[in-house]
C-alpha cells in the first residue's frame, strides 16, 4: 500500500459519499445516470468474486480490501435502489439513453480475447477491468445532453477521475518499487479510463476559474 493507492481509494469513497449525499439532500437523482450506476454494479460484482474465496483476516491488506469491496458493492446496490425505487420520479430517463448493452458486449469480447489465464474467474476479472474503463460514459453523455451540471454531480465525477489519476501514480510507484511488469491489462484500461475523464477535468477547471456552474458544450 502506498500513499497514491490509499489516496485514490479515499477519493473513490468520497465520490460515493457525494453521490448519496446529493440524492438524499435534494431528494432527487436528476442529472445522474442510472446506466452508469448499473455498470458499476456489474463491474464490482464480476471483479469481487474473490470475496468468496479470500479470508478477510489473512493480512491487513486483504482485510482492508474486503471492507472496501463490501462497501463498494453495497453502496452501489443502494444507489440503484434509490434511483429505481424511492426517487424514481426524479430520474431523467428520457436523456439517459446511452446503449450500455454495446459497452457490455464489447467488454465481454475483449475479455474473451485478452485475459491472463483461461479461467472463468480471470475472464470475468478482465471483463470488469474493460467495463470499468468505460462505465462513466453514460453519465458524461447524460450531462452533455442536459448541459448545465449541478455542483455536487461535478464534484462526484471529479473525485472519480481523481481516484483513477492517483491509481496511475500508484502503478508507476509499484513498477519501480516492486518491479512488477505484467500488468498491461489493468494499466492500459486504467489509462484509457483516466483519459475519458481528462475532457471533463478541462471543463470542470475552466468553470471553477470563472466561478460559474459547470456547463458542458
Amino acid at each position: 500500500m502506498n500513499i497514491f493507492r490509499l489516496g485514490g481509494d479515499m477519493l473513490h469513497v468520497v465520490s460515493i459519499f457525494l453521490l448519496l449525499l446529493k440524492i438524499q439532500t435534494s431528494h432527487s437523482c436528476a442529472g445522474l445516470s442510472l446506466k452508469t450506476q448499473i455498470l458499476y454494479m456489474v463491474v464490482f460484482s464480476t471483479r469481487y468474486l474473490d470475496l468468496f474465496f479470500t479470508k478477510p483476516w489473512h493480512s491487513a491488506l486483504t482485510f482492508y480490501n474486503t471492507i472496501m469491496k463490501i462497501l463498494f458493492l453495497s453502496s452501489s446496490a443502494y444507489t440503484i435502489y434509490l434511483m429505481q425505487k424511492r426517487y424514481k420520479h426524479t430520474y431523467d430517463k428520457v436523456h439517459d439513453t446511452f446503449r450500455i448493452q454495446y459497452l457490455i458486449a464489447a467488454a465481454a469480447v475483449l475479455a474473451l480475447i485478452f485475459h491472463l489465464r483461461l479461467t472463468v474467474f480471470e475472464i470475468l476479472w478482465a471483463f470488469s477491468v474493460f467495463l470499468e474503463s468505460v462505465a462513466i460514459l453514460p453519465q458524461l453523455f447524460l450531462l452533455q445532453e442536459t448541459g448545465e451540471v449541478e455542483n455536487i454531480t461535478s464534484h462526484y465525477i471529479f473525485c472519480l477521475g481523481g481516484y483513477r489519476t492517483l491509481y496511475i501514480f500508484n502503478w508507476v510507484w509499484r513498477y519501480f518499487t516492486e518491479h512488477r511488469r505484467n500488468q498491461w491489462l489493468a494499466w492500459g484500461c486504467g489509462t484509457v479510463q483516466t483519459l475519458i475523464y481528462a475532457d471533463f477535468f478541462y471543463y470542470y477547471i475552466l468553470s471553477r476559474k470563472q466561478g460559474k456552474k459547470l456547463r458542458l458544450p
Binding site: 463498494f72 477491468v129 491509481y167 512488477r180 491489462l185
Partner: peptide, 10 residues
C-alpha cells in the same frame, strides 16, 4: 504470484 499485483487493488 508476481504478476498478480493488480488483483490486490480495487
Amino acid at each position: 504470484a508476481q504478476e498478480e499485483s493488480a488483483k490486490d487493488e480495487l
